[in-house]
Write a protein that binds this DNA or RNA. Sequence first.
DNA 1: TCCGGCGATTGACCGAAATCAATTCCGCCA
DNA 2: TGGCGGAATTGATTTCGGTCAATCGCCGGA
Lengths: 227, 227
Amino acid sequence: MNRTPTFDSHEAAVLAKADFMAGLDHDEAEALRACATILLCDPHAVLFEEGDKAAYFYCVLSGYVRLHRHNGDGRQADIRICEPGDSFAECLIHTDETYRYGAQAMDRAVLARFRIPKVRLLLDERPRIGKAIMRSLSLHLISTMECLASDRMQTAPQRVANYLLTHCVENGATASLRLPFPKNLLARKLGLAPEALSRAFSALKTKGVTVRGRAITISDITVLRQI
Amino acid sequence: MNRTPTFDSHEAAVLAKADFMAGLDHDEAEALRACATILLCDPHAVLFEEGDKAAYFYCVLSGYVRLHRHNGDGRQADIRICEPGDSFAECLIHTDETYRYGAQAMDRAVLARFRIPKVRLLLDERPRIGKAIMRSLSLHLISTMECLASDRMQTAPQRVANYLLTHCVENGATASLRLPFPKNLLARKLGLAPEALSRAFSALKTKGVTVRGRAITISDITVLRQI
DNA sequence: TCCGGCGATTGACCGAAATCAATTCCGCCA
DNA sequence: TGGCGGAATTGATTTCGGTCAATCGCCGGA
């Protein structure tokens, strides 16, 4: 892991579009950026472990980050896969002092990390930043609740179909997409074993879903929508 | 469903201890309360459905509220069981306009409901209230993430053991608790069918857990902790 | 005290997905 | 071009928990 003093232009653009930056004016965004440093991660680098003292919250600029929890046994579960533009651990700005899950970079992730005590001070001066972060927290909460509901209610093929429908680009009745990460990450994201994802894909073949590597085509969206 | 113009003293105390009121001074708390009206619910009253236009967020004062989502089929899953002191739907203050899940009262619930547009205006004047709500949102997010992790990682007896350990009152090596609601609600809360909860309890008998009605005793906490 | 009803329990069965193991596929590098 | 290695797939098996059905037990009302 390494640090660079500056953003490149692509990274800056990703950061600017992050949820917790939405609606901020130039000064506010700049003030928030001033709390951050850039972090280059080695593949599989551990950012922090559950229980570590919280000093930063993060925004993914490129690559992916896994958030996960451990069990007493060796078992572990992924809670969320963070993609470029996603932030995590902002929930610690106003709560307690320790991370409640572990975070691990995939690929060679690039992150912006924001020093929490600095951000806290900033929020007192600039309430609108608090509003933006609140919005981001709300969106996380909603998507986590949706994830929980789908875990409890939907079968593996249904969850996969839902992912495809919410991430594809439509083109008349057909649609297509390219997975932004390897299938084992998608499996973790959906709370499945890699084998189960594989089987879900083959179950969806009969519904007009074709998978070749990371490229996926859907021959009829309406068929897929009826789960 | 009916409305009363005023709080009784017990209800006022519950409201004052809600997460989103924490840390507020008297004026701030009073200003927030002024956005609320009281709601008396009939058993099983539906507060709102998924997709309804959001006008209020709520705080449970007595009784319980189920938050749930529906599937295309008749299936439905509970996302959260809200107890007295819990708030829900605050995530809509700064996001979109519709409820993302349905809410149904159990028992004869009593709720405070806060008119969202009013609260929005208040937040602009009083940033510290925003901070309090943000803290509450953060706590919800964390607990929802923990719930997701335990769904993905723990078996039914493990989840039940965890619930018991986090809700019991210890007394040396032993502990006990009284369930605040019927077992079928606990089952929903843990994402289980009632039968599965029943079986989980009988599996825990060998670990020193005794269940009689809603009264539960634990003969050795340490045994239960090793899941 | 008896009866009715509902929540809880138990049993039998089934289906979904985890696990383990064995290939196969594919991209990358020599 | 050939071969190596990790990811992906496939198959066999097991486990967990959902579902359906029957029974039990408790509480309240007649």
